[in-house]
């Protein structure tokens, strides 16, 4: 495989792209200059840092180091997923991090073990980027699901309580809210699947093509990636919603008051 390498000087030249964005923002008095500069700097430093870490991990090629990195990714993703959720539920972090771990574990086993048949299973070239894609997308799904669940519960409290009084258990009664939360979590992934290849070429496929891969091989990888993201997001959403709905009700199948009242 051959591709054009980017030197540090090339990267400095690419700063002109940020410069042009800054100029427009400045002239239009949008007042986003600081955010753009911080964003550009953070992206630069974070990516350089992860590049160094990945290089070390790739060179050492030890399974425990690779799993530690994946675990850190999950721990940060759990935190990030909840940052975007307005209201708190008990054990939310544990629920989301647990859901991410389980769905990443199962999906990685299926993709690396059964589809790609990677040997050894921890080969970082495959495990790390694939785990990153699974965790990143599942995290967004969990975050959307949880946020929507809490707003739907408040919105549909009468339906939920009517269902409870008709004899439904908490899970059946919260189905009205769960359904909407599930849809909200999966719609971004489904939308991407609908337009992939037609409107945009996804990042991984583009990366492989630039790295010199045969476009037909790159496409096959991308198909696998789309399926795996959908599957992992669905499983994460399911686990997150199932465990979260337990926290919204008491053991006597009563909707907890703090999720009904105005904040």
């Amino acid at each position: 495989m051959s591709y054009i390498k980017i030197s540090f000087i090339d990267l400095l030249v690419s700063l002109s792209l940020i410069g042009s964005a800054l100029l427009i923002i400045y002239l239009e008095k949008i007042k986003l200059e600081k955010d753009i500069l911080i964003g550009a700097l953070r992206a630069f430093l974070q990516l350089l840092l992860i590049g160094c870490i990945l290089k070390i991990i790739f060179d050492l090629n030890k399974w425990y180091l690779i799993l530690t990195l994946v675990s850190i990714m999950i721990l940060i993703a759990g935190y990030d997923a909840l940052r975007r959720v307005k209201k708190r539920i008990p054990y939310a972090y544990l629920i989301v991090a647990g859901a991410l771990t389980l769905s990443a574990g199962i999906t990685l086993f299926l993709v690396l073990g059964l589809v790609l048949k990677v040997k050894p299973w921890f080969t970082p070239q495959y495990l790390i980027p694939i785990a990153g894609m699974i965790i990143g997308n599942s995290m967004s799904a969990a975050s959307l699901a949880l946020d929507r669940l809490l707003s739907e519960v408040k919105l549909r409290r009468y339906e939920i309580e009517a269902a409870l009084s008709l004899g439904a258990g908490f899970y059946q009664a919260s189905h009205f809210a769960l359904k909407e939360a599930f849809r909200a979590a999966l719609i971004p992934t489904l939308n991407t699947m609908m337009i992939v290849g037609v409107v945009q070429l996804p990042g991984m496929m583009t990366g492989q093509i630039i790295a010199g891969a045969n476009p037909q091989d790159a496409v096959r990888y991308q198909i696998l990636v789309m399926y795996m993201i959908l599957s992992a997001s669905t499983l994460t959403t399911f686990l997150t919603l199932r465990c979260s709905s337990m926290q919204i009700f008491t053991k006597f199948h009563q909707l907890k008051e703090e999720y009904i009242l105005e904040n």
Binding site: Y158, E159, E161, A162, A163, L164, S165, L166, G167, G169, F176, F252, H253
Partner: peptide, 18 residues
């Protein structure tokens, strides 16, 4: 609680239909 709710039904202020 399920046994109780079978014996005692409730109608809310709003229809609360599904």
């Amino acid at each position: 609680v399920f046994k109780l709710r079978r014996k005692i039904g409730m109608v809310f202020q709003v229809p609360a239909l599904f």
